[in-house]
Design a protein around this nucleic acid. Structure first.
Lengths: 238, 238
DNA sequence: GCGAATATAATAGCATTACTATCATAATTA
DNA sequence: TAATTATGATAGTAATGCTATTATATTCGC
């Protein structure tokens, strides 16, 4: 029986490794998943943004990094901002995928919420199922750069094109679990997006502005804190 | 008696209007409060960043806006990033000042926490006490640009110079109230910074990504939500 | 296997940005 | 009134954020 489920898991992994995360086509000019250069742009982009930060990152530098001309990169992405949107969108798509898998067959909504929030707020480790992308570096980029993907004057236009739908869909999915537990709670989307964004900020603060956070020995304080906030809010008396 | 306190308030306002918010001297090359041009740079900067956003904002455009040469602005601030730091630092200094005033003579720590969180999360209205700065516009800038002031590769260095001390001191002050109410709560700094940042993000979402938040008729949902999170966490059973 | 289409490389160029430098003139201060 | 200091006017430079052009690979249909 144990062996049998093990085989199923292997089969699923085989299946998953051939799947790719779908990213809204308005983000790119040419789908980077369809070519070797495209993948090198994405991988190299993750590498370089993680290393030097989004402000210092340029397509010229990326070109040097992956040994391809700057102009070739522009055939895939209009601007570095669009590349960032691509990375964020890929990340949320990947997260949602993992979450759906992690929640299958879990009946209790309380347990589902626990799993979802833990997944969203814990430190990410490498996922071998999605070949070429380094999820650990990507997670660091999400932590320090994701706000910049929507805090711009183009948000409204980009939002209309659906570039944030991956994130919104994830938030909606978790909010639905909250609703299942307590249909009277009025702020479920607020709660979920606050906890997700909050956890990212706190991870950044731990590294760079420790006075703004709390480090507790022997536990992942950010996960514990996030779970507490969620549970207290959903089961709250008000 | 009522008239007497009214006179005291007028006297205090008179006093305050002559005070100015102290900003860490590492942020500027020359204190903008000391000259007419300096004030025009700050005011015009607030105006223009609010209008076109921080990405599109340049010192050349600011020069045209305030009808002074670009090079003159560089005598006050090294870069537009430093100007942003200045604005954020001023804002937090102003907030802390208002908070201290708003909390004087309030004994109950619960009530103090309520007042502090309401102040920090509600929509800002014009404060005539601090002459030349438009606090409403500045609050919009804090909402949409403040994350960019620390999400850079220079954080650690800038943090060492004390550039973020205004924000940290405010967070510490509110965290102290939390400690007063429940000294066993382990995550007070996390809680406070999450709620402040979270409220800003939620205000942004209401305008631009409404699917990520909840709008409730007849109340300021962001303030209510923030207060609930605080109270639940501090009085939480865990 | 060959020609046609398509993708990439190599190179150039151009307007804007992010500054720095210089010098003249105005305002302040000793 | 001279000396200092602040501002204005103007220039210049390296890097950024692109677009364009042409040449060379690579892939695809037949």
């Amino acid at each position: 029986m144990l062996l049998y489920s093990h085989i199923i898991i292997l089969f699923m992994q085989e299946l998953i490794s051939k799947l790719s995360i779908r990213v809204n086509s308005h983000i790119y000019l040419k789908d980077p998943e369809t070519s070797d250069l495209g993948k090198r742009i994405v991988d190299g982009g993750i590498d370089l943004i993680d290393e030097i930060g989004f402000e210092a990152f340029t397509f010229r530098k990326l070109g040097q990094h992956i040994k391809s001309p700057e102009a070739s990169i522009y055939r895939y992405f209009e601007s570095k901002h669009k590349l960032l949107l691509y990375l964020m969108s890929w990340y949320w798509g990947w997260m949602e995928y993992r979450m759906v898998l992690g929640l299958t067959n879990i009946k209790s909504p309380q347990e589902r919420l626990n799993i979802a929030i833990t997944m969203l707020t814990e430190q990410v480790s490498q996922d071998s199922n999605f070949s070429h992308i380094d999820e650990v570096k990507l997670n660091r980029i999400v932590i320090s750069e994701s706000s910049k993907s929507y805090l711009t004057k183009d948000v409204d236009h980009e939002n209309k094109e659906g570039v944030f739908s991956g994130y919104k869909s994830l938030v909606a999915r978790v909010s639905d679990i909250v609703e299942e537990i307590n249909p009277n709670y009025k702020y479920r989307h607020m709660l979920v997006s606050t906890v997700i964004e909050g956890a990212h900020h706190q991870r950044y603060f731990v590294e760079h502005l420790p006075k703004l956070t709390d480090v507790v020995k022997g536990e992942d304080a950010i996960v514990t804190f996030s779970l507490q906030i969620m549970i207290n809010a959903v089961q709250g008396n008000e």
